[in-house]
Structure formats: C-alpha cells, structure tokens
Amino acid sequence: MSADSAAGDAPRPTVPAPDHALESVVVRQERGPDRCTCYPADADEATRLTTWLSVNADVLRDLETMR
C-alpha cells in the first residue's frame, strides 16, 4: 500500500439486498425506556421476545445521519 492511499479512500463493495426484510416496532413503556425490536415479518411474538434484538429506543440513530 502506498503512503498516498488510506483505507477510508478505498471504494466500498456493493452489497446485494437481502432476500428478506426486517420490520421494527417500538414498545412505549410507562416506566423505563421505550424499547425497539427488529425482526422478520413472519416472526411470532414469542420468537420476537426470545430471538431478535431489542434495544432502548433512545440509542437508535437515523442511518442517513450516520453516513
């Protein structure tokens, strides 16, 4: 690698779109932080609670603002 090039300058590979899409839902809490869960559309409630990612909604960031 030459001194002129930096890792951040390399072209980004094109990533194909996945054959599935994730949905998300924010559950508003009376006590404690609101929670957001991302999951596939066909996941039942038990699977969403035990398998998929849930985070405090206040830590989420808009993808466009992070680019």
Rank of each mutant, 00 (worst) to 15 (best):
E30Q: 06
C36Y: 02
A17I: 03
C36P: 02
V59W: 10
P16H: 11
D44L: 13
S54T: 15
L60Y: 00
V25N: 09
V26T: 15
Q29N: 14
C36V: 07
A43M: 10
V27A: 03
P13H: 11
A21L: 08
D9V: 03
C38D: 01
L49R: 15
R61Y: 00
A10K: 10
T37M: 04
G32N: 05
T50Y: 03
D4K: 12
N56K: 12
A41F: 09
E30Y: 06
V26G: 00
A41P: 11
A46L: 13
A41M: 05
V26Q: 01
A6I: 01
P11Y: 11
V15L: 13
G8Y: 10
R48T: 02
R31E: 13
P18A: 13
Y39G: 10
Q29T: 13
C38L: 14
P18V: 00
L53I: 07
P33A: 04
A41R: 15
T47E: 08
A57G: 00
P18W: 01
R12I: 09
A41L: 09
D4L: 04
Y39F: 15
A46H: 09
V25P: 00
D34E: 04
T47H: 04
P18Y: 01
L53A: 08
R48M: 05
V27G: 02
D44I: 05
T37A: 10
N56L: 00
T50L: 08
E30P: 06
D34W: 01
L49I: 04
V55D: 01
A46P: 01
T50A: 11
P18S: 07
R48A: 08
T37Q: 07
R48I: 11
S54F: 03
P13N: 05
G8V: 14
R48N: 02
A57Q: 03
V27F: 09
A17S: 13
E23P: 00
D44Y: 07
D58I: 07
V59R: 14
L22W: 15
D9K: 15
V59D: 05
W52M: 02
A57V: 00
D42H: 15
E45G: 10
V26F: 00
